[in-house]
Design a protein around this nucleic acid. Structure first.
Length: 109
DNA sequence: CAAGTGACTAGTG
DNA sequence: CCACTAGCCACTT
């Protein structure tokens, strides 16, 4: 793997580690925090790598798309993503969509 | 090298 | 609210 890709993945990892328990953020929010607003797809790509490399220490399940849909649920075994969110008290609208309005966390400070 | 496909999003009608 | 689009870039075919 290329060094710049390695760096990108590591930067995504450090940002994902900041998401508080019981809160979630979106691919676009992470992309904005990295200064690459238009490349939200790459954040999803990086998360896929992270769930392979650090399935337990990086809370990749706390990242959903801008509509609250669990678009990454297939990268986890079985129903792990929804189970972890449920465990943390995230309010669901239905089986694969959460209610972002009360638990949406961002990097603005 | 060309074209299709995503863990995406904001804009437009 | 839904459908469609452009922009994005790694990866596969």
């Amino acid at each position: 793997m290329k060094p710049d890709q390695r760096d990108f993945i590591d930067r995504v990892r450090s940002l994902v580690m900041l998401i508080p328990v019981g809160k979630v953020t979106t691919y676009g929010d992470i992309a904005r925090a990295l200064g690459i607003r238009k490349s939200a797809r790459l954040v999803g790509w990086a998360l896929g790598k992270l769930v392979d490399e650090h399935p337990l220490e990086v809370p990749c399940h706390r990242v959903v798309n801008a509509q609250g849909l669990l678009s990454g649920r297939h990268a986890f075994p079985g129903n792990t993503m929804a189970e972890r969110l449920e465990q943390e008290g995230i309010p669901f609208k239905n089986s694969n969509q959460i209610d972002l309005s009360h638990v949406h966390w961002t990097y603005e400070s």
